[in-house]
Amino acid sequence: SEEELEEFAKEVLRRGITIIVNGIRITEVEIFVKVLREILEKR
């Protein structure tokens, strides 16, 4: 749901943790923004 997305976004921003994806360091915020864009483009 959109509320869950908002909560996830807030949690990500609070933690600001960097994770490893395919050997490249990407912040969770960047991943969230990318996923959010993909979701919005599909609408």
Rank of each mutant, 00 (worst) to 15 (best):
S1D: 07
S1G: 08
E2L: 15
E2Y: 15
E2F: 15
E2Q: 13
E2G: 08
E2D: 13
E2A: 14
E2T: 11
E2C: 15
E3S: 12
E3T: 12
E4S: 11
E4L: 13
E4P: 05
E4V: 10
E4F: 13
L5Y: 05
L5F: 07
L5P: 01
L5Q: 03
L5H: 01
E6T: 13
E6F: 15
E6L: 15
E7D: 07
E7S: 09
E7Y: 09
E7F: 08
E7L: 09
F8W: 15
F8M: 03
F8T: 01
A9N: 01
A9L: 13
K10E: 04
K10H: 05
K10I: 08
K10P: 02
K10T: 05
K10R: 15
K10S: 04
E11V: 07
E11I: 10
E11C: 15
E11R: 14
E11Y: 06
V12E: 00
V12I: 12
V12K: 02
V12M: 14
L13E: 00
L13H: 01
L13V: 01
R14L: 06
R14T: 04
R14I: 04
R14N: 06
R15W: 12
R15V: 03
G16W: 15
G16A: 10
G16N: 07
G16P: 03
G16D: 03
I17W: 15
I17C: 14
T18R: 13
T18G: 05
T18V: 14
T18K: 12
I19T: 01
I19K: 00
I19V: 10
I19G: 00
I19P: 02
I20R: 06
I20L: 08
I20G: 01
V21N: 02
V21L: 14
V21K: 03
V21P: 00
V21R: 04
V21A: 06
V21M: 10
N22H: 07
G23F: 14
G23H: 05
G23P: 03
G23N: 07
G23A: 11
I24G: 02
I24P: 04
I24M: 09
R25P: 11
R25C: 06
I26A: 02
I26H: 03
I26K: 02
I26P: 04
I26M: 05
T27Y: 14
T27P: 05
T27M: 07
T27A: 05
E28C: 04
E28K: 08
E28D: 13
E28V: 06
E28T: 14
V29A: 06
V29T: 03
V29S: 06
V29R: 02
E30V: 11
E30W: 15
E30T: 09
E30N: 09
E30D: 09
I31V: 11
I31R: 05
I31Y: 07
F32L: 15
F32G: 00
V33S: 04
V33Y: 04
V33H: 01
K34L: 10
K34R: 11
K34V: 04
K34H: 04
K34Y: 06
V35W: 15
V35F: 14
V35I: 14
V35L: 13
L36P: 01
L36T: 02
R37T: 05
R37A: 03
R37L: 13
E38C: 15
E38F: 15
E38N: 09
E38P: 01
E38H: 12
E38A: 12
E38T: 10
I39T: 03
I39H: 05
L40K: 03
E41L: 14
E41R: 14
E41Q: 13
K42T: 09
K42I: 10
K42V: 06
K42C: 11
R43G: 06
R43K: 10
